[in-house]
């Protein structure tokens, strides 16, 4: 059997991923994360009379802390899997990927283990985040002449 024919046979037997449902779950969970984020911003603004910028930063730190804590306690991966991409795309996913990689390599030392493997998954997000922000900055400069 040639490779093309075999691909057809395989496709026939393998289940399709339900993308619509996955997308909907991700949309709802991701939206709910947004609500929590907004609640945290308002909470910091109103309770501690902080500025919008400070409150946003604290909101991010809070979410990172919670996802790292739950990852370390060992059940965030189950939540993430059920939430499809709803918890991976927000900042919680970034923290989760770093924390889970660190836990894997904890026993292999601070430098050779955690240090060099922490960014196993998150590394490419940082690299391409920086690269794309460079290009978007360039585009914005060309369009608006550097004015915000």
């Amino acid at each position: 059997m040639d490779k093309k024919k075999y691909q057809i046979l395989v496709k026939k037997h393998c289940p399709k991923e339900n993308r619509l449902l996955n997308g909907l779950v991700a949309f709802l969970v991701g939206g709910f994360m947004g609500i929590i984020g907004q609640f945290l911003i308002d909470f910091y603004k109103n309770t501690f009379s902080l500025s919008q910028n400070y409150s946003s930063a604290l909101m991010i730190i809070t979410l990172i802390f919670i996802s790292c804590l739950l990852t370390s306690l060992g059940f965030f991966d189950k939540l993430v899997e059920h939430a499809k991409c709803g918890l991976i795309i927000p900042i919680t996913g970034f923290a989760h990927s770093m924390m889970s990689a660190s836990i894997d390599y904890k026993k292999e030392g601070l430098v050779t283990g955690i240090g060099s493997n922490m960014f196993k998954l998150a590394g490419s997000v940082i690299v391409y985040g920086v690269v794309s922000s460079y290009f978007f900055g360039l585009i914005r400069y060309l369009i608006s002449g550097g004015m915000a």
Binding site: C14, P15, T71, K78, V80, E81, S97, A101, I103, D104
Partner: peptide
């Protein structure tokens, strides 16, 4: 850990 994702990483998995 060796072949796939970190153990505690919960990215969605395919049915296969």
């Amino acid at each position: 850990k060796q072949f796939r994702q970190p153990i505690e990483y919960g990215g969605p998995k395919k049915k296969t």
